[in-house]
């Protein structure tokens, strides 16, 4: 299978897509070659990020969205990210458990991804997987991440619309979330709205959002009950509205271009640190201060004139 991987991929073989994702995840040379080859060609999809604290129903919402979105086009890719244990390196990936609708559609492709210890952050691997799914022909991507720590900022970098999911009981903690999660959402959703306090939670969120003096798009706050497919169509309408807003204000392209710069930054950081680790022994042995060592390395890099880099080819 390995030799014809790329041609099988182009023929639409799911096994080839799955295998290439593995190669890219494992940061193999072959994986990187394939992604470089596919990068500049082909389909680009619309990416929807879904994030929020554990247990708010992200996977269930993805499952419900799947049903609604597939009415428009069922060529959907799903990337479900769960954390790896920092202690054992293992991971329990259980998001598929709630995504039973996916089996109804031949063209829905789900991949569970463990965050692993990637230094470039979650975005490096996820971005590559997203690109692969797009080139494979997926027109809509749903990217689900647990909203703890850094990952929610990463998801903002690589998606077009970010949905932040909360539950009625999130109301009180919203003050605490102001600093992080409240700034990244393009759409806010109170899931499990059949429970008490949903309206109050919506009010809380609206109040917090009104404190932002961001101009332009005002994030809507929607109540849904994903488990029963309740009001999920309103969520889909909001996604469409946000997409239109990005398009009419020429932001879609702009955001995607800055995404590329961020990816290069992430990769550089990743490669740089890995390289540095190879020099560990020398750094430890050196009597110079950390600042001086850092300057020494930087001076070496700055010697390369970046103009020369782009002249080739």
């Amino acid at each position: 299978m390995n030799n014809n991987l790329l041609s099988d991929f182009r023929k639409g073989d799911k096994k080839a897509l799955a295998r290439i994702i593995t190669l890219v995840e494992n940061e193999t040379k072959k994986g990187m070659e394939i992604i470089s080859e596919l990068y500049s060609e082909g389909n680009v999809g619309y990416r929807i990020g879904i994030t929020g604290p554990p247990g708010v129903g992200k996977s269930t919402t993805v499952n419900a969205l799947l049903k609604e979105l597939s009415l428009i086009d069922e060529n959907i890719g799903i990337i479900a990210v769960d954390p790896s244990s920092p202690f054992t390196g293992g991971a329990m990936l259980g998001d598929r458990l709630r995504m039973n609708n996916s089996y109804d559609y031949e063209n829905v492709f789900i991949r569970s991804v463990a965050s692993r210890g990637s230094l470039g952050g979650l975005s490096a691997a996820t971005e590559n997987i997203a690109v692969l799914m797009e080139r494979f022909g997926k027109n809509t991507l749903l990217i689900e991440t647990v909203g703890v720590g850094q990952s929610e900022l990463d998801i903002m970098e690589i998606t077009d619309t970010v949905i932040v999911l909360l539950v009625p009981e999130s109301g009180d903690s919203i003050q605490a979330m102001k600093a992080g999660i409240m700034e990244i959402g393009d759409i806010f959703v109170v899931n499990k709205a059949d429970r008490e306090g949903a309206d109050r939670a919506v009010q809380y969120i609206k109040t917090v959002l009104s404190l932002n003096d961001k101009k332009g798009w005002i994030p809507p706050v929607i109540k849904i009950t994903a488990k029963n497919n309740d009001n999920v169509n309103e969520l889909v309408d909001s996604i469409k509205e946000h997409k239109n807003y990005l398009k009419t204000n020429k932001l879609l392209d702009k955001n995607r271009k800055s995404r590329k710069i961020e990816e290069v930054e992430n990769l550089l950081r990743d490669m740089f640190i890995k390289n540095l680790k190879l020099n560990r022994e020398k750094i430890i042995k050196s009597n110079e201060s950390p600042y001086k060592i850092a300057m020494k390395i930087m001076n070496n890099i700055e010697k390369v004139d970046t103009e020369d880099l782009w002249k080739e080819k």
Partner: peptide
């Protein structure tokens, strides 16, 4: 998972077809 593997749990009532589809997608 504690032994360092990445484990996908797909839950109850899986048909052989679903199991194989999942195994392929997840490689």
């Amino acid at each position: 998972a504690d032994a360092g593997m990445e484990v996908i749990y797909s839950g109850l009532h899986q048909t052989p077809e679903k199991i194989v589809k999942t195994a392929i997608e997840e490689d």
